[in-house]
Design a protein around this nucleic acid. Structure first.
Lengths: 212, 212, 212, 212
DNA sequence: AATGAATGAGATTTCATTCAT
DNA sequence: CATGAATGAAATCTCATTCAT
């Protein structure tokens, strides 16, 4: 029955309500990654966050809300690491830049796959995620950055004028996403050159016949 | 207390032991699709199969076995619908044939995605599936058929000689798989032309510069 | 769904955590005695204690812990009632004092026999009991008190100097223990003079030929 | 649905109804000893007896009957090994003969203790045992043989005329029984000389002052 | 008479959620 | 507000018993 939050949490959050929410979301994320969705009980999250079990219900209405929130928040981080991609237009080669993009988002995708897959296992959780956020936004932003880069290259003449840069961007993203999925499924036994080969195929499709 | 199988089940299975197993697997599959993996309790499956709760344990050793079995059985159906693809080499256009392939496997993938993704959420279930079957076979066979078809087209000169037909097959499959994934995630709000556009991009990459 | 402890329990325990533990142990003991170990399900104990079924797991980790605890707690009471025995040396007769000892511990043994025997039926419970406590202590202490008394009598010359007081004490205890065992087995149909006769036999063996 | 008993059982029992009963009781005994009372399910017994699970109910009315029978049958074997004891009257010494008796029945008692203790864990089983047999008979027969032997010795003048041979026999039996009990409880860590010391105490009580 | 599949009661254990403090 | 004990629903799994074959 100690009224104030434990010191440790107090320090981190400053007692700010929104900060405590975030603190709980972080804990939820760590628990999901470490122990799977099935292991993400409210108790486990409360323990990880070093708060009382009941405290969660002061910030969320039910068990699924923090899980859905935590997963969505993570998805938003996806586009962060490649924000510098458009600046590389004209430098290196298109193939090299696509490989750079692929390697940037792949590590994030590797984290997201188990989360996304977990979301599917429970229709209620999926609904909760859909309710929490008009999802897909952030995924799109990652594709958008790539698309923007390809457009820049096209203007520079390093990509065929007739190529559909938007579609190409989608394909590249799908390749990365699907490969992350299979990496997880197969337990990491996939050869890295598979990714390279497929990315290069798209690069070739984009550049063949261009002036470069 | 113990009674013979209810008439309804008796009729369907004829009392054959193997048939009852299948009957239970069908029920398990229906429950997973309808209520998610989290909702696929032994009781729910028994109810769906219209049998007693304990009866499941006469046919399976634990709760995961029927789930793993049911999912694997479904995955095996994946390559079935496109077995006629190689025979289409030389007919229609490459783009049309790839669209045909995509539409064939997409409906199956739409069924499989929730199952496969669900399997990820529970490490124990994933292990059970791996134990039941050296999986991935069927997925590969679907890619293999596509690859075989592309090779045939290449020999017919309808695809550039320098194109990597294996890589192209992989990419097409990934596009289909990933789209199914997002269709499920977004609740079916994806426009069908997105798939067509991406498939056509690959077809164009393969055929541009070929003699046809 | 969650409510405070029912009034009745609240009154008895005052809400103190340790008191509730004891309250549960008492209930466990009553259930074992009344319905046997096989009947001592967690649910039965919870009902007897007038608490919710899940509450037991707030105080114990598994079903065996409260049983083992309850039994050990009772065993500790064994040596209590005869602590005044050594003070009787020189008073009454040896036979009378041994009868006194026998009648004192017999009622306690009658309680313990079903518990101790029950412990044997489940190897896991036996292990749990051994884990909870290096048992046997209390049994020995009861024998020790008797042995001490006999030694005192020997020094007073009321017992033959050549008699082995330690061995005699063991035999008397065994007689009491084994009789309790058979009383329980036969459902109480044993004649009380059987005990007296056997005790007197030992008394006679100890005193015959002594100076008294 | 095979009508005849399996060959193996047919051979052993000759198809005789009483023999099959015994065959099942043997199996029940083996299961209890090997896996404890908790492990003695009807299924386990049927498997051990190599018969169908339902077949047991053609010979017994419920689960407890074969267990009670099996245990009682074993108790009857108790007096077997010492039937030659009365013939030893007049030979060796009384102490040696009592030790002989003790060592004979102790090994059987070691087998019986877990069975007897197991019986206590379930009031219903205990009632079943009481119902099956006016029990104690066989135990008494073991005591009777010892009593008979002591009487013979008394007539030979090797035991004091005033000694109560019946009571002495009971005490010796109790010592053996209780020691077996504690051997089991302590896991065999009891020193064998404890038994000898106690037996000799009784022998001394019987013989001291006799003519021999 | 032998069989064993079918059954549901019941055992243990977990966990989301509430609410008195 | 924060807390965590209390709770009962629900999940998995076992097993004695019956009965159609």
């Amino acid at each position: 029955m100690p009224r104030p939050l434990p010191e440790h949490v107090q320090e981190v959050t400053g007692g700010d309500s929104a900060a405590i929410r975030e603190h709980i979301l972080d804990a939820a994320y760590r628990v999901i990654v470490a122990r799977g969705l099935a292991g993400a009980s409210t108790r486990a999250i409360a323990t990880e966050a070093e708060i009382g079990a009941g405290t969660i219900y002061n910030y969320f209405n039910n068990r699924l809300q923090p899980l859905a929130h935590a997963m969505l928040r993570r998805i938003e981080l996806l586009s962060r690491p490649v924000s510098d991609l458009p600046g590389r237009a004209g430098k290196h080669t298109v193939a090299v830049n696509l490989r750079y993009y692929a390697s940037c988002i792949s590590s994030t995708l590797d984290e997201l796959v188990p989360l996304g897959a977990a979301a599917f296992s429970d229709p209620k959780l999926l609904a909760a995620m859909r309710a929490e956020h008009a999802n897909g936004e952030s995924v799109h932003s990652s594709v958008n950055i790539l698309s923007k880069y390809l457009l820049a290259e096209q203007r520079l003449g390093r990509i065929r004028a007739t190529a559909d840069h938007r579609t190409a961007a989608e394909i590249v993203f799908r390749i990365c996403h699907d490969q992350a999925f299979h990496r997880y499924l197969e337990g990491g036994s996939m050869k890295p050159e598979t990714l390279t080969r497929e990315i290069d195929f798209v690069a070739e499709a984009l550049t063949s016949g261009s002036g470069s």
